[in-house]
Amino acid sequence: MSETTLPVKARSNVSRLFFGRNANTVYALVLIVILASIFVPYFAGTATVSFLLIDAIPILLMAMPMALIIITGEIDLSVASTAGLSAAVMGVLFHDAHWNIVWVFVACIVVGLLCGAFNGILISTIGLPSLAVTIGTLALFRGLALVVIGDNAVADFPVDLTTWATSTIGGTGIPTFMIIVAVVVVIFGIILHFTPFGRALYALGFSKEAASFVGIRVNRSKFWLYVASGGISAFAGIFWVLRYSSAQSDSVQGLELSVVAAVLLGGVSIFGGSGGIVGVVAGVLIIRTVNYSLQLAGLPDTVLTIVTGTLLVLSVIAPSVTARIRRSAERKRSRTLIHDATAA
């Protein structure tokens, strides 16, 4: 706590823009892209842009509410299962119940919102720890997906839609769907960085008690974050089904780890209270770029999992190591100050 007793110079907005943790993540991303273009054959090209970004879409979508949730010091591990349940519902309503596809989409989003609300009630109203609750719902929602669709796979979705989901904007290689994702990212960016609600989330992450003393509605904020997470996850599930033209009970399985890894890699502290949307977007792209370039280099999946795991561990270790260095530097400084004062 020594740092709070000393005068600390706040960084200017400009310096934060170029030297903050967000900026470091972006630099790391740029560097990785450059190195991959030099060393990995076939990497440089529009095909890479298209293949890399299309797999980033579901992670990017889910990472948005996840970033906000982790900033408040909580977590949501049920995102991929929520998406899987929404995929299963989509398959059954479209194929067996013959609903119009528009109403199918609406129903899927509603299912996602309900999943989120369920998490939200358990965590905010009843006050259970989010890790325990969402590990539970990770299994629960996946189980429900199995009940809904069984071991069937639905694949006869409208071809127009599935082609559109994998289409790109002209010759740029950028997936058309990215436009929607960009809108979602901007909305979450504005909510987090430019509204009182967003600033309250940081306060919440630092200290729940302090936040409630200054008038932040802690439980209500958390509840709505989980509802948003459920809705966005369901949306990611819809995209997943259209992109692979296949809905089944194991759709989107295991993606929650990539999402959490990307958010942490993007500079959001696992202890809550810090992080930004730009960093998270860069974090998602780093994970995808590293994965895709390793795949393109023909490396087996085993190496990929090791690299992703290492990146995740590094991203959690790095801030605490720098914090420790900072603390020891400050302790040294205060000792010098005391020494100077007594000498004078």
């Binding site: 790391a28 590293v290 023909g298 720098t322």
Partner: peptide, 24 residues
């Protein structure tokens, strides 16, 4: 401190990229 952080990020990225091209 800033330089340390950037340096670490650069080193990490370089290792990843080298690992990527090693068996190409």
């Amino acid at each position: 401190r800033r330089r340390v952080i950037i340096g670490a990020a650069v080193a990490t990225a370089a290792i990843m990229a080298l690992a990527g091209c090693a068996t190409t």
